[in-house]
Amino acid sequence: MSNRLIVESKNDQAFVQALVDYLNLPNIFVSAFESVKVEICKEDYLLSDGVSLASLIGELKTIKSESQKEVIDKIGIILDADDSISEKLITINSALKKVFPLIEEDLFVKPNELKELILEDNQVIQVACHMINVNEVGELENLLREIKTQNSDYADCLESWRSCVEQKDKKITEKEFVKFWVNNYVRFDTCSKSEKKQVKTNCSMECFGNVMKNKLHI
């Protein structure tokens, strides 16, 4: 039996997977998330601009197919709210109706509720959705910056760079800045001499999965 968690980007996947692995201690293993598989939508990551309906449908169809060869107990969908929770709920409801034709009405009127999906073969799967990054709070990079453990001189010096940019009447959003900060923290503050031989693999957000796998201490 397994549970599936759909997140929006490759980096979200790496982080949530690491979190799940970290929490997956024997005493917690008994809980509902006994074998969570985190799925990603590469296209969404590349667009880095909200979930696409097509990708969510693709992911849900894939899970539906897999439910015929293994028991899937629960599906979780974690999306960035961006500007509007209600718009994201529309996306989720549309995708669910497209993939599970027995659903007649919108399944979710608000996030964080557990609902039942009934499949054509009478199988029942529970599904829930959760929104992160509501009103620019809860962005993955904000969280990473908050929980950093190492010295961050290189990344912190970007504050001076931001001031410089702003003095020249140029704009950089807080979201962009925090992403840049995390990039620099991973690339310069926490990249060891040996890791620098393969910077892209070991010390970049492009390969954030490797960072989450091998350098959880940072």
Partner: peptide, 27 residues
């Protein structure tokens, strides 16, 4: 895809459209 359904223990043929097959392979 021929597989065995864990609930019914019967062989099933899981059908995929080609775009979903491509999506599954890509992922």
């Amino acid at each position: 895809e021929m597989a065995r359904n864990p609930r019914s223990n019967q062989i099933v043929g899981i059908r995929r459209d080609l775009d979903i097959l491509e999506y599954s392979l890509d992922h």
